[in-house]
């Protein structure tokens, strides 16, 4: 019981962590929050549905399609929101991304179906569950794929920030946008790539999540909230914190659903967000600042 709960909690938590990575990247580089992120995650799920179920292609084609769609969506979002991507427009940006979120949801509904339509995506791989410790720990293959996928993305992410020039640019813009501009770093490019990166990682999370649940047009926002909660718990500007926060949230959720009641699962996330924001607004890995919120 406990081991099953833990594995599903960690698998879900890693996906929350991926959404949280998207939140953190955008918050670090552009000091922005994108409410449409969750809906773009849903887009990831729906695109993989179209490729795998409708077109009958393999998971590799689905990954390519998700990447293409998310890069296009990221550049489009950046172009639309560019006039608002300044510190003094934080609230306007927030309202505009709420509009985008609505827009994306409408597009999903237009393309893939109405309110009550729940679509099922077939599992990415088929096979028996992994059995460890003589049957004490049973991990369904789907969770294993989710975890592996999330781990790969996280490693790619870390490598990107550590070893590429663009990653270095992004870190410098996050650190001090003005100074970065003065030394000649193309800040617009950095903002654009932060947006693209944030949406890509979220859409991949949607692709990984889709086979484990049913997908529907309204799925995005609750997931975004959870990703945001994970980012807050980890400290809004910390990349490792996002992953840790995601796993904490995922495990916390399945524990509540397993030992308290399954309908309380949703509630636990909201309670956690609220408590974290009020009492620990800097999170676990957050930098100490005199005035952070």
């Amino acid at each position: 019981m406990l081991s099953v709960l833990l594995t599903s909690g960690i698998a879900n938590g890693l996906l929350y962590g991926l959404i949280a990575l998207g939140v953190v990247v955008l918050s670090k580089a552009a000091n922005a929050v994108n409410f449409s992120q969750g809906d773009l995650m849903a887009v990831g799920g729906f695109v993989s549905y179209s490729v795998i179920s409708a077109a009958g292609l393999g998971p590799a084609a689905a990954i390519v399609a998700v990447l293409v769609v998310s890069v296009v969506a990221g550049i489009a979002s950046f172009l639309i929101l560019r006039p608002l991507m300044k510190t003094e427009h934080v609230m306007s940006l927030l309202i505009a991304t709420i509009g985008l979120s609505f827009l994306v949801k409408g597009l999903i509904r237009l393309i893939w179906g109405g309110q009550g339509d729940y679509l099922a995506v077939p599992p990415l791989v088929q096979g028996p569950p992994l059995i460890l410790f003589g049957g004490n720990v049973i991990i369904p293959l789907q969770y294993l794929v989710m975890m592996a996928g999330a781990a790969v993305i996280i490693l790619l992410f870390a490598a990107f920030f550590r070893f590429t020039r663009l990653g270095l640019f992004m870190r410098s813009v996050a650190d001090n946008p003005r100074a970065a501009q003065i030394v000649g770093i193309p800040t617009q490019l950095v903002l654009c790539s932060a947006m693209v990166l944030s949406i890509t990682v979220t859409a991949i999370a949607g692709f990984l999540l889709a086979p484990a649940t049913l997908i529907f047009p309204d799925m995005g926002f609750a997931l975004f909230l959870k990703g945001f909660a994970a980012a807050i718990i980890g400290g809004i500007n910390s990349l490792p914190g996002a992953i840790v926060g995601g796993i904490l949230l995922g495990v916390c959720e399945v524990m509540v659903s397993g030992y308290v009641s399954s309908s309380a699962q949703e509630l636990s996330a909201f309670v956690l967000i609220f408590v974290a924001l009020i009492f620990f607004p800097r999170g676990i890995f957050g930098a100490r600042k005199t005035r952070s919120v």
Partner: peptide
């Protein structure tokens, strides 16, 4: 309308803010 409500309202919100 399937989806158009959200598309129009979402687009309207973005357009007004901008």
């Amino acid at each position: 309308s399937e989806g158009w409500l959200e598309i129009i309202f979402g687009g309207m919100l973005v357009a007004f803010v901008l």
